[in-house]
């Protein structure tokens, strides 16, 4: 308002805040939710007899539910990624498969409750009624369905969300402060002053959106996933991010190259075979790189920030089209 002056734009180096390592307490809390790939094959559902493929599919369905409800409610992506993380973590501790004496929550029920919680945690609250209506519509795959308090499903969903909330909170150990990867990515883009490079930004954003549908958040910290998306996007767009005092950019962001590559390779594993809409090869082709090789990496020798599309002819727009598929 009055009295205050607007800070000079962020171009002055002084004002650019150095990235800091995440606070130790947060790291500690996050660490208990990071698993090995091998552990991901021993989740409670799999122990209960679900095949790993089916389990992954179920997770995907749950996250997709979150994304769709979230879009209906116009929720920001940070909130949706938080909800997806809550969902994935919950499934690490609870089986989705019914067995005698145990009736699991349906993945949609978990997803809806995780989203409800995420809206509160990320301060994007929606009215319960709106949330419930969106859930009913998405669950019934009828976006225009008339839903109101006279609809039986309305109360069922509402009860489920309210009664599952504390179960989820407990299961999540109240580890609510997840660093949304989108936020980390945004800070990184800003830090390297490339937030106005639309191609790079969109590509990184799209990689990140794709990663929501994968269990990547159980394998890496949010920061790593954000850095991996930026890394993949930089390779895609042939952009070189600046080193600082001889340190490569990921180290400035407290992320190791090895983790970035592991994450990229996993993404490639998952998406390589899904062709983009127009039938061209997936953007993930060629993303793979050996985890420990140092040479391979530095994306492109070009140092310009705006380089022509990279060699395999992929345009970042395609990446976006994949993101577009989320709303199915």
């Amino acid at each position: 308002m009055v009295s205050t002056t607007i800070n000079p734009p962020d171009t002055t180096p002084v004002l650019r805040e150095r990235p800091r390592p995440p606070p130790p307490v947060v790291v500690e809390a996050e660490q208990q939710w990071i698993f090995s790939e091998e552990e991901l094959l021993r989740t409670p559902s799999i122990v209960d007899g679900m095949s790993p493929e089916e389990e992954r599919q179920t997770r995907r369905k749950g996250v997709n539910f979150i994304l769709q409800v979230g879009m209906m409610l116009k929720l920001p992506q940070t909130t949706l990624s938080t909800a997806a993380i809550f969902f994935n973590r919950f499934v690490m501790r609870n089986s989705l498969k019914a067995r005698p004496g145990y009736k699991p929550l349906h993945q949609y029920q978990i997803a809806a409750t995780a989203l409800f919680l995420a809206t509160k945690v990320e301060e994007n609250c929606r009215k319960m009624k709106e949330l419930v209506i969106a859930c009913v519509r998405v669950a019934l795959k009828d976006p225009n369905k008339l839903v109101d308090e006279q609809t039986k499903d309305f109360w069922k969903w509402r009860d489920t969300i309210l009664y599952s909330e504390d179960v989820i909170l407990e299961t999540l150990c109240f580890d609510l402060s997840v660093e949304p990867p989108f936020q980390s990515l945004f800070h990184m883009l800003k830090y390297f002053r490339v937030e106005h490079d639309k191609r790079l930004r969109n590509a990184a954003w799209a990689f990140l959106s794709d990663s929501l549908l994968t269990p990547l958040c159980l394998l890496f910290t949010s920061r790593t996933i954000a850095a991996a998306s930026l890394y993949a996007a930089a390779r895609c767009c042939d952009v070189q991010l600046p080193d600082e005092n001889g340190k490569p950019w990921w180290e400035i962001q407290y992320v190791s190259l090895r983790d970035i590559r592991r994450a990229c390779n996993l993404m490639a594993d998952l998406f390589e075979h899904s062709a983009a809409k127009d039938g061209e090869a997936s953007i993930y082709v060629g993303l793979r790189s050996p985890e420990d090789e140092i040479q391979f990496d530095t994306p492109g020798s070009l140092t310009t920030s705006q380089a022509p599309p990279n060699s395999n002819g992929n345009d970042p727009e395609e990446v976006l089209s994949e993101e577009g598929e989320l709303d199915g």
Binding site: Q32, E39, P44, V47, C173, F174, D175
Partner: peptide, 13 residues
């Protein structure tokens, strides 16, 4: 035939 479940102890609650 089943894989063994996770044995992680979660802290916080």
């Amino acid at each position: 035939t089943m894989p063994k479940g996770l044995t992680r102890q979660f802290r916080g609650c």
